[in-house]
Design a protein around this nucleic acid. Structure first.
Lengths: 169, 169
DNA sequence: TTGGAAAGTCAACAAGACTGACATAAAATT
DNA sequence: AATTTTATGTCAGTCTTGTTGACTTTCCAA
């Protein structure tokens, strides 16, 4: 690409779109995601659970009563993969699966008291880091952070994200 | 928004630090990271490689001549894990491993022409998405994005990130 | 009543991470 | 010169989390 063109093609300043800047952003995502998952991962080592369990707990807590199919769409995994995780969480009494009243094929998922406890421990660790990062960067930076992340999502995931914004499912 | 306390505790506006806002940020990271890896993942399906190969190619390209130990520290994996990936890349002629001149224990890693080609295909797909997101969000948002991500990194990873900023390793 | 959707299960498999043990060569230290 | 440490590679085994494919059960709705 030869990168270096110092003069923007238009009158606008587009230096933030150079390949070098973009690569910096790519590396920032890579390194930051590691920090993002580090704290919950450390906690999960004490239990017999992994990151997949954390994700399930997070989204069940976020949308209590959600169905397995909903959760599948949000997490973007196969039902077999989710099922293994869900089964252990149900067996261990962290998640309750209630047969749907209207549609009895559906299972509605809820956290038990025990599930809420672990979810809170995990999410509080993650929020602590997020809070520190937000405080360091400030409100304007946070707004930009969210804008860029949202623009980076796949359209279907952006819909998931935005639907969670307001009410639950 | 219903968000907890309407009145900030101090004179400053700290609404961006509510647990709800933090959870929004956590979900943004989760969904955005999926978009971030989606394009390279699709390309990698055509080859016999995975995300781990992409990461190795990226950082070798970024710091040509880097040693195995350096790469290990950057990627944050075990040598056994990296070795498996590196071995296939060398066998397939994408990466060249040269014995160090000064210290013959070290192996210096370089991309071959073939390696550069694949790395470019992968990174161009990733940059394309990043470019679109940056363009949508604008330069101010990008600056904030980078600030928050940097603050979110583990200190050791932040050092890695910043050392890559300037010259190579 | 029958077709199809939702959910669950079983089996097999793969990527990519891990630990632990061990081998080799070369550099550094004693 | 002998010993220790470092850098790398390799073998073997395990774990988590994802995949596909096949099959069953339940049950809603046309």
């Amino acid at each position: 690409m030869a990168e270096g063109g110092p003069g923007p093609s238009s009158g606008e300043n587009l230096l933030f779109l150079t390949d070098d800047q973009l690569r910096r952003g790519i590396e920032a995502m890579f390194f930051a995601y590691r920090g993002f998952t580090a704290d919950p991962d450390r906690i999960l080592e004490n239990y017999a659970y992994g990151r997949a369990h954390h994700r399930a707990l997070h989204f069940i807590r976020r949308s209590p009563g959600t169905t397995v199919n909903n959760l599948l769409a949000t997490l973007g995994v196969t039902k077999q993969s989710l099922n293994r995780v869900l089964r252990t969480l149900i067996e261990d009494g962290l998640v309750e699966s209630r047969v749907g009243r209207r549609d009895k094929r559906e299972r509605h998922l809820f956290l038990t008291t025990k599930g809420v406890t672990l979810e809170h421990e995990l999410s509080e660790a993650q929020r602590r880091r997020m809070r520190a990062a937000y405080r360091t960067a400030g409100p304007a930076a946070v707004a930009g952070f969210r804008q860029v992340l949202e623009a980076m999502m796949e359209p279907e995931m952006r819909r998931q994200y935005q639907s969670l914004k307001d009410g639950s499912a």
